[in-house]
Design a protein around this nucleic acid. Structure first.
Lengths: 156, 156
DNA sequence: ACATGATAGACAACCTGGTTCACTATCTAG
DNA sequence: CTAGATAGTGAACCAGGTTGTCTATCATGT
């Protein structure tokens, strides 16, 4: 069975490929004025989105507890990527929004990811890359967002 | 640019695919008498290998400090997957070796990974899967082991 | 109008896996 | 046989996650 490649190579390559992309992203982000951002942060900011969220909502979309989401928001606030403001319609809620600096990081990330994808397309051929993406889509849940991801490798 | 798919989908799918495989592995491992093993553990045991290592060596191959490696070894020892024995040739060293239980986990993991890969082959077609693996190999470092991985997502 | 229940946020205590700094014991070379 | 490198360990700390508890504020049903 699998004389070609031992089964454990596949997951390892997937992880490695992810790492490579994320590392390149953050190297480039560092060059573009965002040296302190960490992988999770981009992740979380992506999940916050342009409209803003709350800790509870963010926790839900990220698949972590509201407390964990709250902590992450705190650090993100501390380094200037998000801001919290009370919701006038519901004084319990505090709406978390990206600051211009955070938005900048996000748009740069999007740009860089597009560039990285273009590099892959150049290296592999556009057709092969599309096949790869299509195959991955077939083997992964549609959700894309609810991946319970930040820190899952550590805790599970 | 990338009207097809936003650049950030690729890394996300890679991570998700990794997660799917690892989750399936551990569900199955749980069924086969290894309910307490966690993703890192299989990882680390794979890195320990059949000959055994030491904390320092393990740290090097894993890309973490010797102290971190030492802690992981401790937990692995506590749950019965590895054992430490003094090295007669160098009394400073303590050689870490897999126990039969640990070895069992490792061989079962290999088997399960092969099965999972076979599922992918059945789903995608053997040729597509080989293309995918080959493409990933092309885009990732050859090393395969020195991926600095356990916990990198949390800390970086 | 108001009591009851659900929800948002925050705090505390704890766990894991990682880090740095510091220290001891042992090996290895000059 | 001393000086320097190396193996292991311990302590203090950090990030991110968890559970459990508490308060404040909605939202609803009688």
């Amino acid at each position: 069975m699998s004389s070609e490649s031992p089964g454990f190579e596949l997951p390892l390559r997937l992880l490695l490929a992810f790492r490579v992309l994320i590392d390149e992203l953050h190297t480039e982000l560092g060059r573009q004025g965002h040296p302190d951002i960490r992988p999770m942060h981009g992740f979380v900011m992506q999940a916050i989105g342009p409209h803003g969220t709350t800790a509870v909502e963010l926790g839900r979309t990220l698949g972590v507890t509201k407390q964990a989401a709250g902590k992450t928001i705190e650090t993100l606030e501390r380094i200037g990527y998000v801001q919290r403001a009370p919701d006038p319609h519901d004084t319990r809620r505090k709406v978390v929004r990206l600051t211009p600096y955070g938005l900048d990081a996000l748009t740069r990330s999007a740009r860089i990811f597009d560039d990285l994808r273009a590099n892959w397309a150049a290296e592999l051929g556009a057709d092969r890359l599309q096949a790869l993406e299509s195959d991955l889509r077939k083997m992964t849940p549609a959700t894309l967002w609810r991946l319970d991801t930040p820190g899952w490798f550590g805790t599970l």
